[in-house]
Amino acid sequence: MDNIILEAKNIKKHFPIKKGLLLREVASVKAVDDVSLVVHKGETLGLVGESGCGKSTLGRTLIRLYEPTAGEINFDGQNFLKLKGEDLRKKRKNMQMIFQDPYASLDPRMTVGQIIRQPMDIHNVGSATERDQRVLELIELVGLRKAHVNRYPHEFSGGQRQRISIARAIALNPELIICDEPVSALDVSIQAQILNLLKDLQEKLSLTYVFISHDLSVIEHTCDRIAVMYLGKIVEIASRDELFKNPQHPYTQALIGAIPRVGQGKKKMKKSLGGEVPSPINPPSGCTFHPRCPYKMDICSQKVPVLEGSGTHKKSCWLEKAPQV
């Protein structure tokens, strides 16, 4: 298909653990372990999972903020991992990132104007006056006022800061934006403002998003397709409707079951998924979910299941069909 903007094949990102006088590598954290996915132009692909499942590492690896340990990434049909120097820099213009913590991701010593202008300065876009002009345009586009341009980040609230980082991310007219938990640090009433802004900008600028979040309600609202991650692997990927109506992997089912529903009144909590996410240094054998899985079979601890399925709905699970809950 020609509408694929990004294709990742068998991506691995292992962080070495070094010990001893000679700093020999004694083990590695398998943060992302053999992940393949495609991102289509104009869509929002959601990455969801619990902390430590590798969703943020995957997001960063996709745009080479982390160098993958193995695998292949094609961006706009070009092998992105082979690019170097000037070519890489040019390509990078097309991909940007919005970070989780708007307090940590903006330089406190720079004014809002300087922050938003910096990507254009780095990539040498337009003349100085054009850049200043563009900064003002962007500020209005994200719902701030022109008067804000000379202020510093500490003068803004969390929601406004996130607007500044969004302005910075779209300054170069990128095609792809990785949104790493962009609303997790914000209050509920502010979350809605930012989610709406991201949606408006996507329509206006035909952006493609990879949207990382641990909040399934937010993921359901924002994303067209969703990949569920567990311990560095994608365990299920499907369109939004498919995934929520017909979740196939027991982990996806448990995640959906654990969402607190608004307005249903006090209820007895259902028996929830036991245990915790195991260490990615020494993941369980076979299917990494098997120690917590309610439908565990013999094969699960012996062989690693493959992510497969009919059409667009894929799961990595040995069960023929997951019991409906």
Partner: peptide
């Protein structure tokens, strides 16, 4: 009312979320 409306509700699809303008 606005707080309840501004939260994406699971299983309920809306195009846009209701927002509360301004901040706390």
């Amino acid at each position: 009312a606005a707080l309840i409306a501004s939260r994406p509700k699971f299983g309920e699809r809306v195009q846009r979320l209701t927002t509360i303008e301004g901040s706390v």
